[in-house]
Each structure stands twice: as C-alpha cells, then as structure tokens.
C-alpha cells in the first residue's frame, strides 16, 4: 500500500503524491514512459530512496519508509533491479544461496536452491560464474535470487528488457506461475504484450503522477493514456 508518496530530487518531483494499493494474490503492472518515476517508486518501497512525504505500508503495521533496506528485505520484500544485478564473482549456485537470505537455515538451502534452479531453468549452469552469463541468463538468475527467499511482495523492474520473444514468453509463464494468494507482485514493464499476458491490473504513471488504474483493456481505451504513449 503506497499512500500519497512524494519524492523530490532537488526541486524536481520524481513522484508527486502517488497512491497505489496492491493486494495479495495480485499481479500489478506499472507502465509509463521513460522518466515517469517507475523505478523511483520501487526505490522507495525497497528503502533505497527516502520520500519527502507519504507512507508505504506493508500489511497494516510496517511503514517501510522508516526501515533500512535489509529490514525491508527481511520483512519479505524482494526486488529485481532494472539493470540485472547479480554478483559476478560468485557462481549461479552461490548467488542463489545468498538470495535465500540470512534467515533460512543452511540445512534448508540446497532444496530451496534446487527448486529455484528448476523454475529459472539454469540447472546446467549452476557452477558458472554469474559474471560470465549471457544477458538473459542474468535476468533469470536475478529473478531466481529474489524468488529464493519466497517473498510476500515481489518487485520486478523491467524483467524482460533485452530478452528475445521466446525468452519473454518463458518469463511471462514463470511470473504467472509465481502468483499465490499470499504474495503480491508488482511488475514494471514497457512491453505491452507482456503486461497484457501477466497483469491483473495496471497503473499508468506519467511525470510522477498516476494517470490511470484499472484493467489493461481499459488502459488501451483511455484517452489520456493513449495521448501519453502516442505523444512519445
């Protein structure tokens, strides 16, 4: 639950009183032109950027704007970055092991890692250094890292950027399979076909404000949304 969030860099407002409620069990897509503030929104939710005003409530008790990144992660929030962020000096397996988080006992890790490896299809590459993976494999590895902690809130920033069509379809299937009653998923994406395939609802951001919220079909028919996207 994001409530009246405002973020400023100097005098520029990257987010201007944005509110957004994502329910458990839902896949929400946030779309919008470049510079709309999508990544900034995730930065605030994951604790990297502090807002000028507003709150981000996880459940009804935890205000994430008051917590450090590590505390937010331990509360069950995981985020995949726009630029694939894996640890290049560690192998795929070691990356996933760190992804399990500090709380998971060492005994439980191998099984968790094996199941994530199956989901992301990197089974044959477990002992490869992440730094030498191809772009698409890095994207999946990072998705695997954030999955390994079984997050309650999953934030994905452009998970199919730079992927081929078949890889995109594969990722869409993976994200749909991740939907669970006790998990909320927030996906940022430019690829409309992909958004249509995965999202229950979409939020359109433009210049730091919410332009539209509702179904993807509704967004396609909304005059202001069309203007913003065609005007690019």
């Amino acid at each position: 639950m994001v409530d009246a969030l405002t973020v400023a860099f100097g005098r520029f407002k990257a987010l201007d009183s944005v509110s957004l409620a994502v329910d458990s069990g839902e896949v929400r897509a946030v779309i919008g032109p470049n510079g709309a503030g999508k990544t900034t929104l995730l930065d605030v939710i994951s604790g990297i950027t502090k807002p000028v005003s507003g709150r981000v409530m996880l459940g009804d008790r935890i205000d994430l704007t008051q917590r450090s990144e590590a505390e937010i992660a331990r509360a069950g929030v995981r985020r995949k970055f726009q630029k694939p962020s894996v640890f290049p000096a560690l192998t795929v397996r070691e990356n996933l092991e760190i992804g399990c988080g500090p709380a998971l006992p060492a005994r439980a890790r191998p099984a968790r890692i094996a199941s994530v490896l199956g989901e992301i299809g990197l089974g044959p590459r477990t002992e490869v250094l992440a730094g030498s993976l191809a772009h698409g494999e890095k994207q999946w590895l990072e998705i695997g890292m954030v999955l390994a902690a079984e997050p309650a809130l999953l934030l994905l920033d452009e998970p199919v950027a730079g992927l081929s069509d078949s890889e995109t379809a594969h990722t869409a299937a993976l994200i749909r399979a991740l939907r669970r009653p006790d998990r909320a998923i927030l996906v940022i994406e430019h690829d409309m076909g992909f958004v249509e395939a995965i999202a229950d609802r979409v939020t359109v951001l433009h210049e730091g404000r919410t332009l539209y919220e509702g179904s993807m079909a509704g967004a396609r028919g909304d005059a202001r949304v069309i203007e913003v996207f065609l005007g690019r």
Binding site: A70, I98, G101
Partner: peptide, 9 residues
C-alpha cells in the same frame, strides 16, 4: 545495494 536488498546487514 543488491546485498542489502537481499536482507543482509
């Protein structure tokens, strides 16, 4: 930052 956002201090 990546390590912190995975829950490590």
């Amino acid at each position: 930052t990546r390590l912190r956002t995975l829950g490590y201090s």
